[in-house]
Design a binder for these strands. Sequence first.
DNA 1: GAGTCCGCATGACAGATGTCATGCGGACTC
DNA 2: GAGTCCGCATGACATCTGTCATGCGGACTC
Lengths: 201, 201
Amino acid sequence: MIRVLLADDEHLIRGALASLLALEDDITVVAEAASGDEALAMARAHRPDVAVLDMRMPGHDGVSVAALLREEVPECASMIVTSHAGAGALKQALAAGVRGFVPKTVSARRLAEIIRTVHTDGRYVDHELAADAIAAGESPLTPREAEMLSLAEDGAPVAEIASRAALSPGTVRNYLSAAAAKLGAENRHVAARIARERGWL
Amino acid sequence: MIRVLLADDEHLIRGALASLLALEDDITVVAEAASGDEALAMARAHRPDVAVLDMRMPGHDGVSVAALLREEVPECASMIVTSHAGAGALKQALAAGVRGFVPKTVSARRLAEIIRTVHTDGRYVDHELAADAIAAGESPLTPREAEMLSLAEDGAPVAEIASRAALSPGTVRNYLSAAAAKLGAENRHVAARIARERGWL
DNA sequence: GAGTCCGCATGACAGATGTCATGCGGACTC
DNA sequence: GAGTCCGCATGACATCTGTCATGCGGACTC
């Protein structure tokens, strides 16, 4: 019997998922959580075999919960179920030791299969998302360029970025300009968006 | 018996929702759709009493489907179920004639009740979202300012915005500057983000 | 060890951006 | 009808932003 923890802040979906998984003979939902923090607490208490985590949750998001679970409850395999499926999110999730990554467009039957795969030490990544991630490729940005882009992400003026990074404004402009050129963007704002989408930040 | 159309591109959620609603004695799901266009086609064919629409879908989004349904299948009441719940979305939905607006954080039981309310000519809007919308208040932007902001949203340079709007670059700068001042933003990029969040675009 | 490449960092310069003062015309008050 | 307010529109000016030429130092090749 596979003991599953279900974490999703959307009550509607969590409940629905629970009742669908209950139909499977070899799967039991032993705990439900509506936030990242709650998911951690539940996992510590119930030590489930598989944690099914939503990406976007209040408190810790799915990826950081997975990272923490890996240390605190190592026998528990983590998988992410998300509607906001970007190549970037996938990359971060895999780095955090997540073993399954599926969009919410899959069917319940399929989800149950994937839970089983993940439980038996397997891995599963949605094919389309994997293709996206491969298409996005490796980041052409240098570490500094990526850092400047992430500081520029919220639209702050260059002067503020410069002071935060303890750099000359000219230097900051230079990095941002280089990054925008590499990404084919008109200015730093669109460059930041593109880099974020592709998981390069 | 209330005949319901269910539209959500996330298979997992749609299926789960359908099985949960099936438990209610007075509700039948007569059709399911995975996209806006499919939802329209299904509604034309089955003429349901209530259409439960996800906000974000491929093809037409929930709001525009609701607007079209109102004309084509006027006896069908539309309601939006969404995870991306912003005050702006709510405002647009109500303008499109939507009768119910709920986040996916509600329970299935509650959703069934709301479907009944909407079916009997009632309205239902989630309290928290309504509070947000009221807190956001009326837009302080003039029509022109809002127009410039929406053109500026994707990070285009001012020159391009000016040519699209058939205005002098100076004029465009002026509107954007005024809008940023009203919104307390440092520049047009953050101004556009703020306005979008509050449903002023 | 010399040569070469690449990332980090800077300042000067041109061009884009935001601010300001100004004018026009419609709506509303009195 | 005069006065006032507000939105629309423009150009001049100061500031900010992006581009370029330049230099430094570590890594890697030969």
